[in-house]
Amino acid sequence: MTTTSRRTVLVTGSTSGIGEAIAAAFARDGATVIVNGRDPQRTDAAAERLREADKDGEFLAVAADISTAQGARTLTDAVPDVDVLVNNAAIFSATPAFDITDEEWRRSFETNVLGGIRLTRHYAPRMVQRGWGRVVFISSESAISIPTEMIHYGATKTAQLAAARGFAQEVAGTGVTVNTILPGPTLTPGVEEFLTDRFGNDIPLAEAERRFITQERPTSLLRRFIRPEEVASLVHYVGSDAASATTGAALRVDGGIANTVIP
């Protein structure tokens, strides 16, 4: 039996990109994966894509908007218990710092921070009762290197580091671990749209990718965008039995973009 076989894994925001890749990784290991998104049609479509790609995989689609308390309850009512919780759902937008409205700040925090906190408050105590569990927050290298073009996003990702560390301390010694993953720029459908908005439709995607890394993320040692599957590999490890001694940590899969030896 593999390390997540017969376990239930919830991946929020798993209708595309990093979340979908994480869902696929856990399903390949034998887990039952809960696919989650805000839109029912997109959520069902993502689950169907995953089933087509992995005929042996077990996927359950649950549409719920975790940026609201009611949406989080919809999800926890549908799936009362999980063994692995991956708090991946997030939003981002490029907005000049002084133009970010109160509403944008609130919406970012409700989705990126409170969404994961709501679910962790529900699921982690149940994991503690069973003596095993994994909670993973998908943060970003933006948490430690705030991007000027989206400081509201960076601030929420920094907040995730604090929340995850605090939860890890709360469940110390119980068999439950809580960690944060810090991906660097990752080529997801949302990021493709971001690049198109930034460089225009007449620039090929590969060239837009090169320009962004060269001009705006020159500290990257990878010298390219990360692929979702590369992030999923680290998340899968952290969500397994093999990572039993890793908790309260912020783990980087950023291609070396953060010019620091910590976290």
Rank of each mutant, 00 (worst) to 15 (best):
N87K: 03
G115R: 07
R121E: 03
E207W: 05
I22T: 02
P263M: 07
I203Q: 13
V35S: 03
A164L: 04
I226R: 15
P204H: 06
A64Q: 02
A24Q: 07
D202Y: 09
A61M: 04
N87V: 09
Q129P: 14
H152N: 14
E103A: 07
R6F: 11
R227N: 09
A61K: 13
L182R: 03
G154N: 06
T68N: 11
F59Y: 08
R252P: 05
W132D: 14
A206I: 09
P183Y: 02
G19T: 05
L182A: 05
P189S: 07
A168R: 10
T158G: 15
L60K: 15
V62A: 01
Q70I: 15
T101E: 06
T120Q: 01
L234F: 09
A232P: 05
T180D: 13
R121L: 14
N36I: 15
S142C: 14
E141K: 04
T111A: 02
T15V: 01
L205Y: 10
L195H: 08
R51Y: 13
F137Y: 10
Q215S: 14
P125L: 04
T247Y: 11
D44V: 03
I203T: 13
S244K: 13
D83I: 06
E20R: 01
T148D: 13
T12N: 08
A89L: 07
N88I: 15
N201Q: 15
Q41W: 12
Q169V: 14
T74D: 12
N179K: 08
T3A: 14
T180C: 06
G131E: 04
D81M: 05
T2W: 08
V11L: 03
F59R: 02
L161A: 10
K55P: 13
G255D: 08
G190S: 10
A27E: 01
A45Y: 01
T214H: 10
V231M: 13
T120F: 00
P228H: 07
D44W: 05
N112D: 06
S5P: 15
S14R: 08
G57E: 01
G37E: 00
P218S: 14
V62L: 00
Y237M: 10
V178L: 13
T177A: 06
T68V: 00
E141W: 08
K55H: 12
G175Q: 12
W132L: 05
E149G: 12
R106S: 10
A72R: 02
T4H: 03
L50D: 00
R106M: 12
N88H: 02
I22A: 09
S14A: 12
S14H: 11
E229L: 04
R224T: 00
F92D: 05
D83W: 02
V113F: 00
F59H: 03
E229I: 02
I203K: 10
T3G: 15
